[in-house]
Write a protein that binds this DNA or RNA. Sequence first.
DNA 1: GCGAAGTTGGTGACATGTCAACTACTCCGG
DNA 2: CCGGAGTAGTTGACATGTCACCAACTTCGC
Lengths: 155, 155
Amino acid sequence: MSEPRWLTEREDRAWRGYRRMRTLLDLQLGRDLMRESGLSEADYDVLSGLSETEGRKMRLSELATQMLWSKSRLSHHITRMEQRGLVRREECSEDARGSVVALTDAGWNAIVAAAPGHVASVRRHLIDLLTAGEIDALAALSRRVVDRLSGVRAE
Amino acid sequence: MSEPRWLTEREDRAWRGYRRMRTLLDLQLGRDLMRESGLSEADYDVLSGLSETEGRKMRLSELATQMLWSKSRLSHHITRMEQRGLVRREECSEDARGSVVALTDAGWNAIVAAAPGHVASVRRHLIDLLTAGEIDALAALSRRVVDRLSGVRAE
DNA sequence: GCGAAGTTGGTGACATGTCAACTACTCCGG
DNA sequence: CCGGAGTAGTTGACATGTCACCAACTTCGC
């Protein structure tokens, strides 16, 4: 076992910076969103995912895959959102094992009401602080990281 | 209320990319770490923070501030780590309200054993996939975001 | 010194996420 | 058509984090 390649000072700045940003940004965006619309980020993501699909409904497993959530997590969360009237479970006609999550009117209204404020919050705390070059760098770099991780199931 | 400034396509790529990266990277790093050393990322961060201080001990509130954790969260987590023998609570001589968290030998050994693998994991899944320019861009951009959020307590 | 106000850390109730079964169904080779 | 393997979703037990509140202590104005 050879001496590990520790991070250089520059690499360490990037790594620690990324971690701090992640923590603070999440917290702030979540707070803003909750205060303005009573939704958690998780709620917002579910509603947002559904709102973008044809018919505003989707198979549970498809939604879970798209969101990178476990089926269990999504199932629990959908149960809670269903109790709040934001979504509705429907039977799946093609596959009797499956179920479909559909946006209710209340859910649609909630996402429509929340979106402008949320985008503004994302701009205020992140996007508008970045140069055009940084925007593109962030997109490129995260794309590369995500692609590699998506290909590698376990290592 | 005017039409909100939605994200442009480039901005959206950066934002969604960032979010996916965050989710996948966390998951993978956490898995690697847990498999190789039996520590969660939270455990690692606590041990790492303590290991870098003079005397390997720190006030609870100081550690919480540095880690950007709530005192409550840290208190709960320290209780759990204490039960596993990784840290120890000590009374604070200067302030009888306070307490000090100290690294035990087991905790020190755990972080020393875990660090090389964790750094390798961070390199493999993030740092080594980035160009030098991207490293610096990430450091600069996260610095800016963090600074702004640290100044703004509530908005 | 004293009492109000702030700080420190701990606690319990609760929200959320993970993991490992489990049920019900589909798919496929023979 | 049957039986076993695989898949979809649910569930319960448990780990973790949040929030509100409390007790103990410090600090500060008077």
